[in-house]
């Protein structure tokens, strides 16, 4: 297995807050990697740095052996890094079909019809089960449905690795199962995933390896059953709730107790 995505010693500060504090992470090709950690531990910031939405203060991000640190978001997307957002970001006043047709990162002109043509987009909508709503405005959909639209939007870009930011957050259990099925199916076809998620059942069931973040750095990494027993991980979740550190984000402690559900053996 080769490393598809390699993050090395990335630092990112917002004023006095060190959101990423020497964070390193490797995602192997063909795996589903999980990324967990208390609220405010820097998971979303890491996603933003990897995908170019934010610039790292220090450190490097390499994708497929190529240094992509500081490249424009569109460029990084064009290389094959797709992502979804914690709060969905779909184009509210466009139809679902139109949503899937936006963007063309790195696609040669002659392949655009094939990739962004209505037939291909309907296939993707069918894959996430939203064919019937193809002509509906994305803004009129429920939160869970918008998450699925986002997934389809990312797939339309034909990414090599997909970064999912809380794909199961705020979604009903039936739908969560379906999202997990879809991810598993795509993974079997060779797509790599990096998933941030608080739902432990979802993460433990889906991921091959799990990395744990705490205060801007990865503190543990391993197979789900190893991570589950790692004392540092339990400390990051439970310890953080007991001695409330100064740089915990708002709502930190509540998020931590929420996160531990199902993590105990």
């Amino acid at each position: 297995m080769t490393a598809l995505l390699e993050v090395r010693e990335v630092r990112k500060s917002f004023g006095g807050l060190h959101a990423l504090n020497g964070c390193s992470l490797t995602v192997q090709e063909g795996t589903v990697a999980g990324l967990i950690g208390p609220n405010g531990s820097g998971k979303t910031t890491l996603f933003n740095v990897i995908t170019g939405y934010e610039r790292a203060d220090a450190g490097t991000v390499a994708f497929g052996g190529q240094d992509v640190t500081g490249l424009a978001t569109g460029k990084i997307g064009g290389l094959g890094v797709g992502r979804t957002f914690q709060l969905t970001r779909v184009f509210n006043r466009l139809t679902l079909l139109e949503n899937l047709q936006v963007g063309r990162a790195g696609v040669p002109r002659e392949r655009r019809g094939e990739l962004y043509g209505p037939a291909r987009c309907m296939e993707l909508l069918d894959f996430v089960g939203l064919t019937a709503l193809a002509q509906a405005q994305a803004g009129s959909l429920s939160y869970g449905q918008r998450k699925l639209v986002e997934l389809a939007m990312v797939l339309a870009q034909e990414p090599k690795v997909v970064l999912l930011d809380e794909p199961a957050g705020g979604i009903n259990p039936t739908l969560i199962g379906q999202i997990a099925d879809r991810i598993g199916e795509l993974n079997r076809r060779g797509m790599t995933f990096l998933v941030v998620e608080h739902n432990m059942e979802f993460v433990m069931g889906l991921c091959d390896v799990i990395s744990v973040m705490e205060r801007g750095a990865v503190i543990a990494c391993g197979r789900p059953e190893e991570v589950r027993k790692d004392p540092r991980v339990l400390d990051a979740y439970l310890g953080g709730a007991l001695d409330d550190g100064p740089d915990d984000g708002p709502g930190g402690p509540t998020g931590q107790t929420e996160g531990i559900e199902g993590a105990q053996p």
Partner: peptide, 15 residues
């Protein structure tokens, strides 16, 4: 139209 709804997202998708 995508720029109208979410410009940064559009850029991220390669617009």
């Amino acid at each position: 139209l995508a720029i109208r709804d979410d410009e940064d997202r559009a850029r991220g998708l390669g617009v």
